[in-house]
Amino acid sequence: MITGERERMMKDDGLENNGACVVGRIMPGARYSHEAYGERFYRADILACRASGITDIIPLMVFEKVADLERGCPDSIIEVIGQFRSYNRKEEGKSRLELFVFVQGIRYLDDGYVGCGNNNLVCLKGFLCKAPTYRRTPLGREIADILLAVNRPYGKSDYIPCICWGRDAVLASRLDVGSAVEVTGRIQSREYTKKLSEAEEEMRVAYEVSVCRMETVDVQRG
C-alpha cells in the first residue's frame, strides 16, 4: 500500500490530527499492562523495517477487543493503525516521557509478505511547545529537534519529539513556540546512554518521528 493510500485510510478512520500506520513483525513477549473502564490493555513490540534495511522496534498499546496479545501469535506480520501517543510516567520522583502506538485496528498479513518501503507512516498536526533546537553535523547536514503538542479530545495532549532534516530543519528553526504545523514521517527508535551517576550508566531507547515533510498550518483551518 503506497503512502498516499495510507494517509487517506487514516483520515477515513478519523485520525486526521494524529494517525499512525505500521507494518512489521510482532515480537514475542506481549504482556499485560493495565485495566481501565473494564478493558484490559496489553503492551507489545513490532519490528518495522526501513527502506534502508535498518529495523526499528516500536512499542504498541493494544486493548483486548482489538487483539488478545496475551495469547497472540509471535512472529506474525501485522499492520496496525492507531495514534502515536505519549504518557508522562513518574519514576523515583522524576518524569519520563513514554511513547507508543495506541492501536485501534490490526490486520494480519500473509507470512510471505515482503517489503521495506512505506511500512511506517505517522501524520501529526500540532503546536510547537518549546523552542526548536537547530544544529549542523560535522558533514554540514542541517537538523532541528522539535517537540510537538498534539491535541486529543477532552482537553488532553500528546507530546511527540520530532527530528527534521534539511529544508524542514531550516523551516523549524524559524518557528516560534505555539506555531501550528503538520508533519509526516516515520517512527524511529534509537539507543542512547543515560548517565545516572558518576559511576553508573544505563542503556535506553528513545522514540521520535523522523520528519520527511513539514508544513505550517493556518490556525483558522483547525
Rank of each mutant, 00 (worst) to 15 (best):
E5W: 07
R8Y: 07
M9L: 15
K11A: 15
D12M: 09
D12I: 08
G14N: 11
N17I: 13
G19I: 03
G19C: 02
A20D: 04
A20T: 14
C21I: 13
R25W: 13
M27W: 05
P28Q: 01
A30H: 03
R31F: 04
S33W: 10
H34V: 05
H34L: 09
A36G: 01
A36Y: 06
Y37L: 11
Y37I: 04
E39D: 14
R40F: 01
R40Y: 06
R40L: 05
R40D: 05
Y42A: 11
R43W: 11
D45T: 12
I46S: 03
S52A: 06
G53R: 10
T55C: 11
D56I: 06
I58C: 06
I58L: 14
M61W: 00
V62A: 11
K65R: 15
V66H: 00
E70D: 12
G72W: 13
G72Y: 09
P74S: 06
P74G: 07
D75F: 15
S76T: 07
E79L: 13
E79G: 08
V80K: 03
I81Y: 03
Q83K: 15
F84C: 02
R85A: 03
E91W: 07
E98L: 14
Q104R: 12
I106N: 02
I106V: 15
I106L: 09
R107H: 08
D110T: 11
D110I: 09
G112T: 09
G112Q: 12
Y113G: 10
G117R: 13
N120W: 07
G126F: 04
F127D: 05
C129P: 03
P132K: 07
T133A: 12
T137L: 05
T137F: 06
P138M: 08
L139F: 10
L139E: 12
L139P: 00
G140W: 00
E142A: 08
I143F: 08
I143C: 06
A144I: 00
A144P: 02
I146P: 01
A149P: 01
V150W: 02
N151C: 05
N151K: 13
Y154K: 07
D158R: 01
P161L: 08
I163Q: 13
C164I: 04
C164L: 14
A169F: 13
A169K: 14
L171I: 06
L171F: 01
A172F: 04
D176V: 07
G178M: 13
S179H: 11
S179G: 10
A180R: 11
A180C: 14
V181E: 04
I187W: 01
S189P: 02
E191Q: 15
S197N: 02
E198P: 00
A199T: 14
E202K: 04
A206T: 10
S210D: 08
V211W: 00
R213S: 15
D218S: 10
Q220V: 15
